[in-house]
Amino acid sequence: MPLTVYNTELSSRLLLGTAQYPSPAIMAEAVKASAAGAVTVSLRREGARSGSGGDFWKLIQDLGVHVLPNTAGCHSVKEAITTAQMAREVFGTNWVKLEVIGHQDTLQPDVFGLVEAARILCEEGFAVFPYTTDDLVVAERLMEAGCEVLMPWCAPIGSAKGPLNSDALRAMRAHFPGTPLIVDAGLGRPSHAAMVMELGFDGVLLNTAVAKAGDPVRMAEAFANATDAGHTASKAGMLEPRDMAAPSTPLLGRALLS
């Protein structure tokens, strides 16, 4: 069953960022190779002056994939809202990946500003995809504000550390069983994507791990496969680890010596 967010079916559970690639041509190839369900694009810096990033945005629209504009680089509620409104005009979509950065070093979201901005944007009719931490209370507040999707980090943006706290991710899955949960930020390797998908997450969003790879196009493909594998595994029912060895072939007819 495909991932559905805000009444829209996505063709893939992998969402890909469009920044930091060696060239837009390679970015386009990577998006194609990953068959990404949506791409994110940042507007804050490029569009600070009257939509001057138009040529790049046109390249993004030409990809023919759902566009999820983001408010990366916004440090206040006001900046994020202005950027979201501009994104709606530029891309003709009410989707917005909401980022309100609170900490310069870790780029941790300012969760108070995030909830406030989410409330305002939801009231204005935006479909808000909030970049948040794995804090359950913040997640609840975001849902109350009108968010229908949650996007927790699993490690700081661009850190490539992979899931630092799988207990917290597990708890999040358990508390929000019916809400699409997409891990956004911190993934470094395909195995990280598989890991969070195995935890039952609905999708992953990444950028640096693909864009800065030696061969972004092949890495995009690897992440797509890993995301798929993790998702399939979570539906297939995985074994729980046990302490005692259990042979897959019974050792009938032999003496048990222990």
Partner: peptide, 13 residues
């Protein structure tokens, strides 16, 4: 390196 054709003066950031 900013994806933009804006020729205006440098930004504070």
């Amino acid at each position: 390196m900013i994806e933009s054709d804006d020729e205006g003066p440098p930004s504070a950031r």
